[in-house]
Design a protein around this nucleic acid. Structure first.
Lengths: 168, 168
DNA sequence: GCAATATACTAGGACATCCAACGGTTTGGA
DNA sequence: TCCAAACCGTTGGATGTCCTAGTATATTGC
């Protein structure tokens, strides 16, 4: 990977904002830019950990969601809502997971419009193994201190509620 | 947009993790998932604000970076390093910005391998206008409290330093 | 009961990101 | 001096995300 930069590029951007007379929004700009970059770093780590399983993060999230559903099955639109991604993204993920034999589509018993996604035995096993690796290699070594983790959960929870993700 | 969910799906995931015996990593999992979702929300807002300018966030970031360079020009590899994206992503962005007449490629005066990206007058003007809109509509109304903004800058700064983004 | 509206999923297209590989340029050690 | 190694940017391919539009099924209202 690339060597570290000698200076924090986001701190530099914040200083640039301040020197251009935008001091009132320089800090939020820096915070938002930092979120973007942090997401990029975390996603790369996660994808790296999942690569040996032939999974991407998007596909893993769907597998994990299904594995927590009592019946191991969910309607597409439910999955789309819970994962908070566009329905076409779910279609895409299901296509690939189905090709890999990890999930199957089945018709909804009463609503002909709805398609159920169901874990196969192989899908359930793979989800378990992938989760173990993510827990050990990513979540267990996140690089965030315990206090910071709790701060993030609160701050980002407030933000997501304010953005209309959920009511609580 | 979709109506809010009745419950926070990330808090639910955290509870699922705890009930499966992974309490030690449930909180970092929730924090990381929240970062992913927050990035998605912010990116959508930013892209929406930039759409009237025919810009995406990736292209805007490049324009903004160039507008802060004294000469208004930067080598491709420098831009790649400062934006912390893959060189091919810069190639892609420059292609589109050049087609739009916002930047031009020019050869490096002494190093034949290097290509300089330079802002055109139109590019500089558009960057200014787009920044004004982002400052007003996004950064000025981020939805984060002032204290939380500072917390985010510190927490994510520590994380990025630990991840090898920069030394300081 | 039937037409109008709403909902569920999918197809096609635009965009961004990364990786692997390639050709051109520069640098540095034998 | 000269060639191998390092570096730079681009091309081509894979993946994911979103949007728009289209098809099929349900629900609602008259």
């Amino acid at each position: 990977m690339s060597p570290p930069l000698p200076r924090d590029p986001i701190a530099d951007a914040q200083r640039n904002w301040e020197s251009h007379g935008w001091s009132d929004v320089a800090a939020p700009m820096a915070a938002i830019t930092a979120i973007m970059r942090t997401q990029q770093i975390l996603l790369a780590r996660i994808e790296g950990a999942l690569k040996p399983f032939g999974l991407t993060f998007a596909r893993y999230e769907l597998l994990a969601l299904l594995s927590f559903a009592r019946s191991g099955a969910l309607p597409m639109n439910k999955a789309s809502a819970l994962l908070q991604v566009h329905p076409t993204s779910v279609t895409n993920a299901v296509d690939r997971l189905q090709t890999a034999g990890l999930v199957v589509r089945s018709p909804h018993p009463t609503d002909g419009r709805t398609t159920l996604i169901e874990l196969t035995a192989g899908g359930r096993t793979l989800a378990k193994r992938a989760t173990a690796v993510l827990n050990a290699e990513i979540f267990g070594q996140s690089g965030f201190g315990d206090d910071d983790v709790n701060q993030l959960i609160r701050i980002l929870g407030d933000f997501r509620r304010g953005a209309g993700d959920f009511t609580d």
